[in-house]
Design a protein around this nucleic acid. Sequence first.
DNA 1: TTGAAAGCGCTAACAG
DNA 2: CTGTTAGCGCTTTCAA
Lengths: 342, 342
Amino acid sequence: MARMATLSEIARRAGVSVSVVSRVLNGDPTLRTREETRQRVLQVAKELNYTANYAGRALRLARSKALALVIPGVSSPLFADLLAGATEAAEAADYTLLIGRSDRITAGSDTLRRLVGEGRVDGFVLQRADDLSDQALESLVANDARIVLVTSRAPGRRGSVILDDVAGAGLATEHLIGLGHTRIGLIGGIPSSDIARRREQGYSAALHNAGLRKRESLVRRFGYSPEMAAMAAESLVAADPRPSAVVVANVNGAIGVLTALRRLGVDVPGHMSVVAYHDEWVAEHTWPPLTTVKMPYYEVGVQAVRALIAQLAGAPAQDIVVREPGPLLVERASSAPPLSPA
Amino acid sequence: MARMATLSEIARRAGVSVSVVSRVLNGDPTLRTREETRQRVLQVAKELNYTANYAGRALRLARSKALALVIPGVSSPLFADLLAGATEAAEAADYTLLIGRSDRITAGSDTLRRLVGEGRVDGFVLQRADDLSDQALESLVANDARIVLVTSRAPGRRGSVILDDVAGAGLATEHLIGLGHTRIGLIGGIPSSDIARRREQGYSAALHNAGLRKRESLVRRFGYSPEMAAMAAESLVAADPRPSAVVVANVNGAIGVLTALRRLGVDVPGHMSVVAYHDEWVAEHTWPPLTTVKMPYYEVGVQAVRALIAQLAGAPAQDIVVREPGPLLVERASSAPPLSPA
DNA sequence: TTGAAAGCGCTAACAG
DNA sequence: CTGTTAGCGCTTTCAA
């Protein structure tokens, strides 16, 4: 692939000026040109395999037409849907989507500033790592309007697109209630996270609606990693009374829970039912296969990109909750009625 | 974050010309400047929080100082290491690394050409999807020097960085041989893939070295997805004689194999031992936990980026095999001596 | 030791 | 209907 053709090259070959070429190629509606000229330009452009040089355009327009999606642990299967949605929406709007990792983004780092400072991207969609505090986030993004947060709410006036965590965690809990469980535990995220708080809220509400009491002794808030969730599970097994079922606020955590319960000889679902928040392909292959609640991550990706583009165009920041499609219960073998009805 | 400062702004405030600023900021060694001036420029730049506008520089230099890493299924945990290595190496060389997906890249698509055609990236590291043929690849990248393939060899003269698949698959096989197995099956990739061929070669060589016969009846070549590998496992269980152990040429496939064997009531490792090529965190949480061979993916990422940068600088394309660190056997519970010694 | 100026490829305002 | 031109921010040659 040799050097790419430039506008002036096309202009020369087509016997017109660069401005005509530019306007034809960009479909400028105010341009009144002879159809014949237009065709000739198009023809030459195709022959030369023309692609607009991005730097020239970016420099001129002072925007790059690129967006960054920055997430912790890019490689989690959980993000596949989010990514797909964002890619789709970006392409539809003729933006290029870059992917970055937020796990190494800490308060001190200026990776984000630099990305937009250098003009590489016009704005970004950010999913913060669970342990990134509001303060740290604030100092990172300052008053930049060119950002929308996903899954987590932002402090201050700034765009965000989140899942309906209350409904999702509620559905998981209701499923267990429907099976006849009354002592239902929660293995949740760390308390400082707004995500964790909403999921717990959904859990609490479901219990309440069913006339069940929420017991603080059945709630653990260690975090979403398999290791932390495993610890939480061990601790719940030792609780008195011991729960007959547990909702784990994250799939990866639930996988750790399964491992811990097996090690302790607690039969799933016989002695303990497990339902996880979020669905991913491994859930199908754990033992036993995990019952999960699938959340509309794809849609979050789509909406986030759209919201960001809208913000770039001057629209005010919005806080969006994705409710369509709703949470979906994926029943597998890790949940069943309690052995001895409570 | 307001508009970023420009060179001329700094020049004005520091009372010098833009060219001095540019050269000071870029540490031009040929520049002989009064230390005082230098300091003043640096000072002002810091105050204004200067970041070089990337489009201006790219336009001038005709290179973007950005590289793309294009892989199928960005969200596979398998790629986490590769990604980390590539990121590291790119940062070290002062390049920005963009991440793209290759799953939607087919022969017809011109995503790659466009990426470099537009000047967004100077070159890319590509991991092709397993089913992308040499021909399709060829038509995609033509004779472009701005590309390095990873894990797979390239047709023609083009850079590549691959794992030592022969050694890795060999180690997995030797482990089983060491446990006393003699009827060892292989669940491999599709035959058209060079990766699959090398892994099979490692398997064959290990058998041979141990004085064991390779039986075609114990080899399946359906592909690496959990579903395909599960089918292969079912077929192997029906084989006569049935293998007492199996090497699965990919972790994700191995997870599918475990599921299939459980469904068939074949005890692992009692009736069948399973060893997987590649290690990833879920391997720790399957049932039983998977014995795996961990390959130096991180190093592949590092080397690929370095090779690409070298190629961009005019070095001839190289074909590299990463042998350091070597394949590492991670013993978990899915492998054990055969119940009845063969 | 420093400055002036050209030009990378593009768009858009303005002039024919 | 089409062409000329300025200028986005940067690097670099050449001149002072």
